[in-house]
Computed example of a mutant assay.
Amino acid sequence: MSSESLPTLRWGIIATGQISSWFVRDLSLSRPDAKARHTIAAIGSSSQGKGEAFVKQWIPDVLPAPKVYAGYEQVYNHPDVDIIYIGTPHAFHKQNCLAAIAAGKHVLCEKAFTLNARDAKEVFAAAENKGVFVMEALWTRFFPLVQQLQRLVHEENVIGSVHRVFADLGLDQDFASLGPDSRLRNPALGAGTLLDICIYSLTWGLLALDAKVGEEAEKPVIKAVQTLFDSIDVASTVVLYYPSTGRQAICTSTAMFKTPDLFCRIEGTNGYITVEGVSASRPSAFTIYAKDEGTTEGKRYTVANPGFGLFWEADAIAHDIAAGRKESAVMPWAETIRVMEMMDEARRQGGARFPVDD
């Protein structure tokens, strides 16, 4: 595909935190094998100065430079913006999505998509009514490495029938030292590890156990416990149990310990797979160990990643929108709702509450 025929998206960026900095840097990468073209047209920040500093620090060489605004409304309504990327804290996702949709813009919203499944359904209903594309930014699902792993597990059955998965994401975040208004401490902002990082552990459990997504996938039984600190979870353990087959995934998160690079193990009747990377959100390799080989040497797979890996979801969205699709086949609306319902149930059992639950 020539560069002239590549689909193009013009982005408006909402919020200027860490995840937004990763996203704009990936959009601006020079990639000879890029599957789409991306331009950053506008950036909305909490202040003009903060927005300008964001551009200067992270994308100083992008030309033409994006327009910077103090606030978000001008980004939502910017005539040169096709799609809005939302990188605000969880609690603001719903209102940010609804505002962008009302302006007729497509939306890519960071995970967790909303605070609960009820709010996610409201956003998708608005998107359907307006006829725009919306997707939760579960970027990990779009890594070629992850999709290769899924093919090997579910189509080639390289380890036979998968019966158990362990997946963990832990960070040493020292919650006690954080102020009460921190997005990691404030329940009103969706604080705690479940929505922030356990969503990735859950994703690995689902990727390994489910060949399908959304409405076509089985809904596992949820068993969950949480360790609470000032009403938010500093550790969560969620078990996904499939009564039809007995297979299960143990998905964990903690704010008290950094997970080692090997963060996931997938066990099957004919072998097992280990997955590694700096985080469960950003895998870099997996290794397949066959039961009948009688050796500790496995077959290792890697895929080059010149940036953070966020550009793969952006490229996929560009193709979806160019084709007139309103949701992604990789991360459809029903899959976001399915996972949000799992996390709602995990909080119900574990005890972590948000003000919007009342």
Rank of each mutant, 00 (worst) to 15 (best):
G294I: 04
A280T: 08
M256A: 07
Y289H: 06
E276A: 14
E276V: 11
V275N: 02
F257S: 10
A280I: 04
G271Y: 00
V238S: 02
A285V: 02
E293L: 15
Y272D: 02
I250M: 09
A249V: 07
R265P: 02
Y242Q: 08
P283A: 11
P260A: 11
F263Y: 15
F229G: 11
T245F: 06
K291T: 03
C264D: 14
T269D: 15
F263T: 15
N270Q: 09
L228I: 01
Q226N: 00
N270E: 13
T274D: 10
Y289W: 12
F229N: 15
T237N: 09
T295Y: 09
V238Q: 13
Y241I: 12
C251L: 04
F229R: 15
T295W: 07
V275I: 01
G277E: 08
S236F: 06
S279R: 02
R265I: 06
S231F: 04
L240A: 04
F286Q: 11
R265E: 11
T254E: 11
F263I: 15
L228S: 00
P283E: 00
G268R: 01
K258M: 10
L228V: 00
R282I: 05
T237Q: 14
E267Y: 15
N270G: 05
T245E: 11
T259I: 09
Q248F: 12
K258A: 06
I232V: 07
I273T: 05
T227P: 08
M256N: 08
S236E: 01
V234T: 14
S244G: 09
A285E: 09
S244V: 03
A280Y: 01
S236N: 13
V239S: 06
D292G: 03
F286V: 11
G271F: 01
F229C: 14
L228D: 01
T237F: 12
L228K: 00
V234M: 13
